[in-house]
Design a protein around this nucleic acid. Structure first.
Lengths: 339, 339
DNA sequence: CGGATAAATGGATACCCATTCACAGCACAA
DNA sequence: TTGTGCTGTGAATGGGTATCCATTTATCCG
């Protein structure tokens, strides 16, 4: 029983040199069909497969992509990760997961560990990159793609949806719906997604002559969103529409409105979110929201990574994919409104 | 700008040998404080960190755990993975993700790739292990833990909840609630979780003198569960209670009952699930279910892995954690019923 | 306080496993 | 016979750790 079968064992059995074996498993190398057959047969018999780690050492490519993510509670991330991982797998890469808070301290330590594994590339989902780290990756030639977050740094690629525009669309939609006391529940204010969505939303409101009636912050957290909603609707004059910076918080808010405060959505209050996670389409929530095209975003992320891996001189790219406003039942739909 | 800084560079700068550098980064090695300081200082100045891959090659341990999972659509898995990954990270391990269908063909190919990365251990979540693969891992000394699935093989560790008992509890609960036409919507019948839950449930019914009124199969899939629910409630005499093999399908069924068929849950039909994912507690569904203690399950999984890694002679373990029946509003609660 | 012995520490080198590169051998055509 | 192209070989390489041995330092005893 061969505990560990190496290329040398295969070479011995096939009666060739170790190099010959290596070439058989290296696409594009020059080997005669006869040797290739001999080697393959021996490899099969012995159950040989090349050791990826040893290979990485010499080739300098590990075929590992580091994925840093803060939390999976928001269903948008699992959906995206599944797609991301599948696509990378098709290309012969695999994902090494690193969970990190988005506090700079821990994130940096985690990133450093990432580099220890000699990853070929990094996907940072919902996590920022410190300047120092970016510098080190740049120096080591490791491409970084920010997923669902952007950052003002030319060295970083970023894939997001067009958050500003999306926010704006929601504002226009709510204005057209005749709402006059429009509130916003923000996520974590350090996130570019948050800032862009809100900026677009506020700009849209102002273009229509309105302002934010109230505003709360709940860090993309479900329970916090509930508290914020409770406070927001404790006064004598309640908002008649709420834009939650993501679907996850919108669900929390809807739950509070309907089940704690006995309000009706959308008759009493319209609620809109952002992401269009699967759950948003389920009839219990039936949430009007802006779709983030998770599949396309994942595809773009992998494409950027692959391009930069193929040619290190490729410039970092920023992609902001447009996502449609998805009309559902959680908000009053103006007559004749289609997009 | 040092493109790649190696132990040799650090050694040169610190004026010691490469071995000394290595020892400084190997916990438990014998180094004087003076040398350690010199080396650390040089390492910091150069930004040196040991190359995990190179280290793995010689030590034979990669500190990588392969995680195989079929899909993340069921929220139970993201919740578990987050916990799993966090705990492994604390122990200095990291998770390499492999997505696989549970069809044997693809699963085997994916598993083979897994082994190419010299993983130290494998967690198979919602995926079975072929005999051949188990054999090879056994031979290579790689411990395997099945997560949320069990298999009749002494070489495999498995962590599940006590699915049989859980199913039985649900049956007793529904019987006590006075239901008389009790249906079951099964997940994928190849899954041990499915079989155990159903077996326990059926045993519970029979102990109370009843049988399954109807039964459908929907492979743990949301859309399929909806179709099955539609068919199940198309006849003249509908079930008055449905046990769905997991929460995910229960949500689908509740949506169909309430929003397509206009039935009331629980007045017209009681619905119960299995898992107690976060969403089950949200008031929109408020689902009565059996909790799978995801945190404890993840902890147990990591513990088994660590034990076997520390001592290869440790026997594979099977853990079936008991989970409580969580009473909520989706099913009629009999008077005075507490557990 | 000197000397013997044990313990701690540093260094040289082989090794982990596969790829790459320079080079040699061979067959075949010119 | 020489030139050409394809194949295969051996050795170097990548970054680090384990082992063994030599050296230094510490400890103890007479």
């Amino acid at each position: 029983m061969p505990d560990k079968v190496t290329a040398l064992d295969v070479a011995a059995r096939a009666g060739v040199s170790r190099s010959a074996v290596s070439r058989v498993f290296t696409p594009g190398a020059s080997v005669s069909k006869r040797t290739a057959d001999k080697v393959r047969q021996a490899a099969d018999a012995l159950g040989y497969r090349p050791n990826v780690l040893a290979r990485s050492l010499i080739t300098g490519r590990s075929r590992i992509i580091g994925l840093v993510v803060a939390y999976l509670e928001n269903h948008f991330y699992p959906e995206a990760i599944e797609r991301l991982s599948r696509k990378l797998q098709e290309q012969g890469y695999h994902v090494l997961v690193f969970l990190s808070s988005n506090s700079g301290e821990e994130a940096d330590e985690v990133m450093a560990e990432l580099l220890d594994y000699q990853v070929d590339g990094i996907i940072a989902a919902s996590v920022g990159m410190s300047n120092d780290l970016t510098q080190r990756c740049e120096a080591a030639g490791i491409p970084i793609v920010l997923f669902n977050r952007a950052q003002d740094d030319d060295r970083l690629s970023a894939v997001t949806s067009d958050n500003y525009h999306g926010g704006r669309k929601l504002a226009e939609f709510l204005l057209a719906g005749g709402h006059s006391r429009i509130a916003h529940i923000a996520g974590w204010e350090g996130a570019s997604t948050q800032r862009d969505r809100e900026a677009g939303f506020v700009a849209g409101l102002e273009a229509g002559g309105q302002h934010l009636a109230t505003r709360g912050v709940s860090d993309f957290n479900f329970e916090k969103a509930k508290s914020v909603a409770r406070e927001m609707f404790a006064g004598p004059e309640n908002p008649d529409a709420v834009f939650c910076a993501n679907d996850h918080m919108a669900f929390a808010v809807m739950d509070v409105l309907r089940f704690e405060l006995g309000l009706s959505v959308p008759s009493d209050v319209s609620v809109v979110g952002y992401d269009d996670v699967t759950l948003a389409a389920w009839p219990s929530y039936d949430l009007t929201t802006v779709r983030q095209p998770a599949g396309q975003m994942a595809d773009a992320t992998v494409d950027i990574l692959m391009d930069r891996l193929a040619d290190p001189d490729t410039k970092p790219r920023r992609v902001a994919l447009d996502g449609p406003l998805v009309l559902r039942g959680s908000a009053h739909i103006p007559k004749g409104w289609t997009s």
